[in-house]
């Protein structure tokens, strides 16, 4: 965990590093991300979109860039959500960047451990 936090800190962009207003995020359970945090900051939307199309249209459900898995790790341990507070994992950053999040009008923003697909859990365990 410490290592992860450290790497998170290190990975913060220079712009962020110098910006004292940068949001402090509640990263929930955290753990090792599917990609480097900095890479994810930049590219999470692309990979999510790509995987969503594969899942919806082709039924491929074991891709690693799953929104559900993001939430599983990053929903706050306090309220099991990635939304709702200034430091919530998704909302905190999106508020800061003033980018509207559309996902959660339809998708659940809550951690539902029991419902997360066995495949994705297995995936993580095997790591």
């Amino acid at each position: 965990m410490k290592v992860f936090l450290l790497s998170l800190l290190l990975a913060i962009t220079p712009a962020w590093a110098t910006d004292s207003f940068a949001p402090k995020l509640d990263i929930g359970k955290g753990g090792k991300c599917v990609e480097e945090p900095q890479w994810m900051r930049k590219n999470h939307m692309q990979v999510l979109l790509q995987q969503r199309d594969e899942t919806v249209h082709l039924g491929i459900r074991d891709g690693k860039y799953s929104l559900k898995v993001c939430i599983e790790c990053h929903a706050s341990t306090k309220d099991d959500s990635v939304l709702g507070r200034a430091d919530s994992f998704c909302e905190g950053c999106h508020r800061y960047e003033a980018v509207k999040i559309d996902c959660f009008e339809c998708h659940s923003s809550k951690r539902h451990l029991s419902l997360v697909q066995d495949a994705s859990l297995a995936q993580k365990e095997s790591k």
Binding site: E105, C106, H107, S108, H112, L115, V116
Partner: peptide
């Protein structure tokens, strides 16, 4: 209507 607390496996939303 706007919806809340959808099932993670069954995303559904207003206007669709």
């Amino acid at each position: 209507e706007p919806l809340h607390d959808q099932k993670p496996d069954v995303p559904r939303g207003k206007g669709t």
